[in-house]
Amino acid sequence: MSQNGTNGRKSPMDTLKKIGEKTQGSQAWVSIFRPGSIFRKGYADNPRNRSYVVMNSVLYHLHPVKVKRHGVKVSYTLCLGGLSFFLFILLTVTGIFLMFFYRPTAAAAWDDISSLQTSVTFGLLVRNMHRWAAHLMVLTVFLHMARVFYHGAYKPPREFNWVIGVVLLTLTLLLSFTGYLLPWDQLALWAVTVGTNMMGFTPVFGEQVRFVLLGGVDIGTDTLLRWYVLHVLLLPFVIVIFMAIHFWRVRKDGGISGPL
């Protein structure tokens, strides 16, 4: 290939190949990608390397080296659990972006969102993605629960993981609901008014529950701050812990359920 020129000059493709090989051989590259990584030089597709891809990477925290054959079929899980987790990551990324442009006070919140949409590059797009991914996540978590139920996957030895799953569903709803208030528009204010009025009817200590949630007797700037902290810090923190237990238990309880 390199001999196609009469003066023996190397073709750009050859140079590129050489640079690639040199990079892959460098100490930095080798230190980043552990043995068996598909990015290492001369990765060969054999059973040993297939095991190493998982075993020698951070993926080992999530997946075992081998999984049941039936569990890989899309028709069994519909990817619902995994996609819920992925949507959570997507929401974290887009949410962090939004945090750069948002102040949780009654005086500033709506203006911040408004100017985010009009004068921040990709501001509108990222806010849209955050909103739609959030609604989608509620849907996927809900459908995941239905899928697990219809497969009888909550039966022993997976009872406790089902309980954690119900907790995760509740936390997802709470995350979505606390985020609903943050734009501080008419939709947010009155949706949350309806929601928190219902919670006020909790027997015995309903008034106290409502007071703690609102940071006062009425929705106001204190509520906004409170729900902001719940939405961006407390609830994500809690849900990550429960997700960690959930994923760990999936493996400890013998991997994915079934086959039926």
Binding site: R50, L59, K66, V67, R69, C79
Partner: peptide, 13 residues
């Protein structure tokens, strides 16, 4: 009856 996570599961994901 098991298969390797890579590539069978990871590619799907």
């Amino acid at each position: 009856d098991k298969v390797h996570t890579w590539p069978h599961l990871l590619l799907g994901e």
